[in-house]
Amino acid sequence: MTSHHEPADITTVTADAPQMQPLAKDVVSMERWIGLLFLLGIAFFAGFGVAYWQDGTFWLYGTLLGAGLVAMGAGFIAWGKYLLPRGPFVEERHTLASTEQERSAFSAALMERGAGEIKRRSVLGTLLGGSLGVFSIVALFPLVRSLGPLPGDALAKTNWKKGMNLVDINGRKIHVDDITVGGFATVFPEGLQNTDEGQAIDQTFLIRIDSADFTTMKGREGWAPHGYVAYSKLCTHLGCPVGLYEQQLEALVCPCHQSMFNVRKGAIPTFGPAPRPLPQLPLSVDSDGHLIASAGYNEPVGPGYWERP
């Protein structure tokens, strides 16, 4: 059996063999059609050039360019399909596998010259293996370890601390009279409203659900003065900002996968894939009547992760 890379036999076929004929029945008119397609290509490409020169609009560039390419491509395909020999043609498929003898010769060479050598000098072989192993471990240090700091407890913390003012995105403090019942705002710790951390981690949703002090659940008495409740705005599912407030249902809705959180009941999830309530920020009012945090969040905000208690 010949090996695969030997060329096919040199073959001769007559020009009038049926396989050598074009598929087109009317060759002349097919030639005309293909010529027309190429002419269209030329015209569209020229049109693109002019449009570019004249500073047309982008859809004009794209349409002319695309039309030219489609016309040229169609002409090319039609030429290949209808004017070139219709075939079919055949080539032999030779087995790729070598003879039994060649195969064992190759295995023998591998074993005796390579593996055999390592087996004979097994101590050196072990040491070589060891140094490759150590190398592949230490190579990970610069490749992986340098990429960023260790997480530590960074994920468990926010910047909210006792006494911090709540401000909106423009840095304005929130006064107890600023928001009417049913109103809401996104708030940040004062000074951090324009930072990555403030926006990505500390973002908090403030809603006024009542005019009098309110308790969302047992153990959170006094957390919502004048009916102001504040929840972390990071969805406990995948961390999207829970940015929609459905006033009739009094529910916070996450636009990503439609988790809903009941704002009157400590933001427990009532629908969707979020597994935990949104953490609540305890609030109080300072002497000027501005809202402040009376403590930080008492649990990590945002999505779940291994180290989260």
Partner: peptide
């Protein structure tokens, strides 16, 4: 049609083994 090997040479008239 029956398949034919890809011709290396194309000749006019009847070919040797056509």
């Amino acid at each position: 049609l029956d398949a034919t090997p890809v011709p290396t040479f194309i000749v006019e008239g009847p070919a040797p083994e056509s």
